[in-house]
Design a protein around this nucleic acid. Structure first.
Length: 276
DNA sequence: CGTTACCTGAAA
DNA sequence: TTTCAGGTAACG
């Protein structure tokens, strides 16, 4: 569900509220349906040991991971995958659907992890990198993400441009919405072989990636279906998208019907006239 | 490199 | 009943 802008929205909201707080309890409710552990990488007992009593020193984001830096040198990392949400509630607040874990804090509030499809999870690691299979690429909104870094990621590859944008080892944080939106903003057909882009097109794509992600953050994320922020509120980016899930509707720029194709197993939306 | 599995509910 | 879903890791 959530991509960089959605995770960043949650991070910003939680940073001020959780920094300095201490975790006082970990509660894992009984599972429903097929049992899937919500704690990844270590057993639940060791997770509790490391989290309970630890103070939050900061809330960071790496790609689509949220990481709570703890005063014991460990990081509590969270990945929401498709349908996860991280809610900050008063301890007495009503129940949340699909609740997977509750972390109580010393100020009478709770961090609740809910996740309908159970793809997401919680890690207790020394570094977020320890929660990821491969290595995460550069942060697209950081100084380090230059035109030449993007050029290097695309160079020599025959995979579609969109596949490279979605590859977290090349660039961290872009998902299906913002990949489609970036390709539209750059005027590039998402099916083009990555290595076939001219330097001008690479420059346009670089600018477009940053533009759409920043717009997403300003809009507090896109709530098409499940995404909600830490207070359970929706973002507004879904009202501003140019192509995502707009198949059959007229392009805002030229009026042509937006098309949808399947690319690498993901729905891909683009304007056949504006994007070459 | 592309495809498939993971899991569940909502919408077509 | 079938299709679809803001993701990723494990396949072949």
């Amino acid at each position: 569900m959530p991509e960089l802008p959605e995770v960043e929205t949650i991070r910003r909201d939680l940073e001020g509220r959780l920094t300095g707080r201490r975790f006082t309890a970990v509660r894992i409710p009984p599972d429903w349906g097929k049992p899937v552990p919500v704690i990844k990488g270590i057993d639940e007992a060791r997770f509790r040991e490391g989290v309970i009593g630890a103070r939050v020193e900061g809330v960071e984001r790496r790609g689509k991971y949220l990481a709570f830096r703890l005063d014991n040198g460990l990081q509590l990392a969270v990945h929401l995958r498709m349908t996860g949400s991280l809610l900050h509630r008063p301890a007495g607040a009503g129940p949340d659907r699909f609740l997977r874990a509750t972390l109580a804090l010393d100020d009478g509030t709770e961090l609740r992890f809910a996740d309908m499809r159970k793809f997401g999870g919680l890690w207790l690691v020394e570094d977020v990198a320890d929660a990821v299979a491969g290595d995460l690429g550069p942060e697209p909104l950081s100084e380090g993400f230059t035109e030449s870094v993007l050029a290097g990621a695309l160079r020599g590859r025959k995979a579609p441009v969109k596949a490279v944008l979605l590859d977290q080892r090349r660039v961290a944080g872009i998902g299906n919405i913002y990949a489609d939106e970036a390709c539209f903003a750059a005027g590039i057909d998402p099916r083009r072989p990555a290595g076939s882009l001219s330097p001008e097109e690479v420059a346009a794509l670089h600018a477009a990636v940053r533009k759409v992600l920043l717009f997403g953050v300003e809009s507090r994320g896109a709530s098409f279906r499940d995404y909600q922020d830490a207070d359970g509120n929706s973002g507004s980016m879904q009202m501003h998208v140019q192509v995502f899930r707009r198949n059959g509707k007229p392009c805002y720029a030229c009026g042509a019907a937006i098309e949808r194709v399947r690319l690498g197993g993901r729905s891909t939306h683009f304007c056949p006239k504006c994007q070459r």
